[in-house]
Amino acid sequence: HNLTITQGKLFFHYNPKLCLSEIHKMEEVSGTKGRQERNDIALKTNGDQASCENELLKFSYIRTSFDKILLRWEPYWPPDFRDLLGFMLFYKEAPYQNVTEFDGQDACGSNSWTVVDIDPPLRSNDPKSQNHPGWLMRGLKPWTQYAIFVKTLVTFSDERRTYGAKSDIIYVQTDATNPSVPLDPISVSNSSSQIILKWKPPSDPNGNITHYLVFWERQAEDSELFELDYCLKGLKLPSRTWSPPFESEDSQKHNQSEYEDSAGECCSCPKTDSQILKELEESSFRKTFEDYLHNVVFVPRKTSSGTGAEDPRPSRKRRSLGDVGNVTVAVPTVAAFPNTSSTSVPTSPEEHRPFEKVVNKESLVISGLRHFTGYRIELQACNQDTPEERCSVAAYVSARTMPEAKADDIVGPVTHEIFENNVVHLMWQEPKEPNGLIVLYEVSYRRYGDEELHLCVSRKHFALERGCRLRGLSPGNYSVRIRATSLAGNGSWTEPTYFYVTDYLDVPSNIA
């Protein structure tokens, strides 16, 4: 807008934040220059609390790290170098490059900038070799853009010569660093050979998330399962459950009422301010606690030095998902009996873990797994792929695949051998790939016309006998059925096997 004052003059007093240069501009645009008398524009009460600059400061050096910015700028000295009290560095987070010096300023003089007072450097006698002032900004957020400017702080001049310097606002972004852990990993099994893994992005990506790394490792069953005799009275049979499938998407929606109208769909109840505040506090606490764990609990591995020492970490090797089922080394339970199943799973520490690289999504279907087997899954978020990966501390989750139908069934015939004193040795093959492992066998036998009897055969007993022995049988026709019990439950009964026990007292003698 054009402003013209045809008559009258300007009068400025007691404006401590208004620089004289701005008042002189007002004289020019209003056409009143030359009308004012000496005392109409006070030299001592206008701009006496402001830094009124008329020179431009330029930054000469900028260096960044993930949490620091090192700045240096060209030296500046007023005509009387004693008038320079120091520099004021202003900075704040700036997602967009549209910041002005006066953003967030209120009537009390406060604003949204963080201000650092910096002492002037030592003055050199040689004007050509003056030290460049600077400042190291610490405690910054990774991968965050900051708006920065600097200006001088000078003393009051009796001659009211307006001098000083100020830089333009520059924008500097800190470097990326390792992201925080992925949030809320959930693993479920939808079949006997697959596990579905879902997660949420890290709360602090500290860069642009480029991919996720998912490692999985087959877990050995508890050692007590191999040692305890679950045929003993009072000892509860062990059981394991597989990871249940995901709930429906509708039930997972946030901010939804727990109660549904019987007449149909209901609208979600909005969260109160107290609920939102509580969630923010919980989120802040979780982030602080995660940072504490990362800094205190997890110790970084030592990389190899120039002395030739090897990095103890196993090298990563990509495998196809079809090879995942046989990740671990199978060892027989008892070496003397080769027909026992290889369900003991000690994992070799030198073995390469299978892994998958996930790009542009937060889910993965891990296939080719062994049925009813526990897996430990390790999830890392990465925001750099080359020249070397920059990934987060791992988040861990466990899951067990679903049982395989008929995996616990005894394959092959049940054979028998009759000894003296009416002892019958029953023999059968253990299931080759049971659900988890076989903890015991149930032997059901009966003599024709009598009630059915049951015998429990422990895992250890089966390994020693290759089956079991029935003792003290009365003469007669017998039928026997056997079924295995694994961590997933009972298998199917075998087809009945028949044998006849004679009275050993009636056996004919070869003595003449």
Results as ranks from 00 to 15, higher is better:
273 D>C: 03
262 S>L: 09
355 F>E: 10
395 A>W: 13
284 S>T: 12
425 H>E: 10
216 W>F: 14
204 D>Q: 03
243 S>K: 03
365 V>Q: 12
402 M>A: 12
432 K>T: 12
391 C>P: 01
236 K>G: 11
453 L>F: 11
288 T>E: 14
302 K>H: 13
272 T>E: 13
326 N>T: 03
250 D>N: 14
302 K>R: 10
410 I>N: 03
332 P>E: 15
278 K>V: 09
286 R>N: 04
389 E>G: 04
473 L>D: 01
508 P>W: 02
274 S>A: 04
403 P>D: 05
258 E>W: 14
472 G>V: 07
357 K>N: 11
414 V>C: 03
486 S>Y: 00
286 R>T: 09
275 Q>W: 11
252 Q>L: 12
421 N>E: 14
259 Y>V: 13
505 L>G: 13
257 S>R: 07
396 Y>E: 03
485 T>S: 12
439 V>T: 10
391 C>L: 01
357 K>F: 13
480 V>T: 06
489 G>S: 07
328 T>S: 15
465 E>V: 14
481 R>G: 01
467 G>V: 04
484 A>G: 10
453 L>D: 07
251 S>W: 03
483 R>E: 00
319 R>I: 05
279 E>H: 12
263 A>H: 05
424 V>P: 01
377 I>Y: 09
456 C>G: 01
474 S>L: 08
334 V>Y: 09
503 D>R: 10
308 G>C: 14
491 G>A: 05
504 Y>I: 11
203 S>C: 14
454 H>Q: 08
448 Y>E: 02
494 T>G: 00
224 E>A: 10
457 V>C: 12
475 P>F: 05
421 N>V: 11
390 R>S: 07
409 D>L: 13
361 K>E: 10
273 D>S: 12
210 T>G: 08
360 N>W: 14
413 P>K: 11
399 A>V: 11
440 L>V: 09
415 T>V: 15
317 K>L: 13
228 L>R: 09
506 D>T: 15
406 K>R: 07
303 T>C: 05
356 E>M: 13
280 L>H: 15
249 E>T: 09
402 M>D: 06
380 Q>V: 06
214 V>F: 09
429 Q>R: 04
431 P>N: 04
243 S>R: 12
479 S>L: 04
310 E>G: 09
284 S>Y: 01
335 A>M: 09
448 Y>K: 14
403 P>Y: 07
469 R>Y: 10
327 V>T: 08
395 A>G: 13
479 S>N: 02
210 T>P: 02
407 A>I: 03
290 E>T: 08
283 S>P: 08
296 V>C: 15
303 T>K: 12
458 S>N: 06
316 R>F: 15
250 D>T: 10
224 E>P: 13
476 G>K: 00
444 S>C: 15
438 I>Q: 03
331 V>Q: 14
252 Q>C: 13
427 M>Q: 03
221 E>W: 15
391 C>N: 01
239 S>H: 09
372 F>M: 10
327 V>F: 07
456 C>V: 02
381 A>P: 00
320 S>C: 08
420 E>N: 10
443 V>M: 05
292 Y>D: 08
315 S>T: 13
494 T>L: 03
372 F>G: 06
423 V>W: 05
280 L>R: 11
504 Y>R: 03
225 L>D: 03
421 N>K: 12
401 T>Q: 00
298 F>I: 11
371 H>T: 15
256 Q>Y: 13
377 I>P: 00
316 R>Y: 02
303 T>A: 08
373 T>H: 09
414 V>A: 04
214 V>M: 02
355 F>H: 12
300 P>R: 13
319 R>V: 07
424 V>A: 05
332 P>I: 11
410 I>G: 02
486 S>V: 01
363 S>W: 09
437 L>M: 04
494 T>Q: 03
284 S>P: 05
346 P>K: 10
302 K>M: 09
438 I>Y: 03
427 M>D: 02
389 E>M: 15
267 C>K: 08
322 G>W: 13
211 H>G: 09
277 L>W: 11
452 E>G: 09
246 F>M: 09
218 R>F: 03
418 I>F: 08
335 A>I: 14
261 D>M: 13
389 E>T: 09
404 E>D: 10
435 N>T: 00
363 S>R: 04
294 H>K: 15
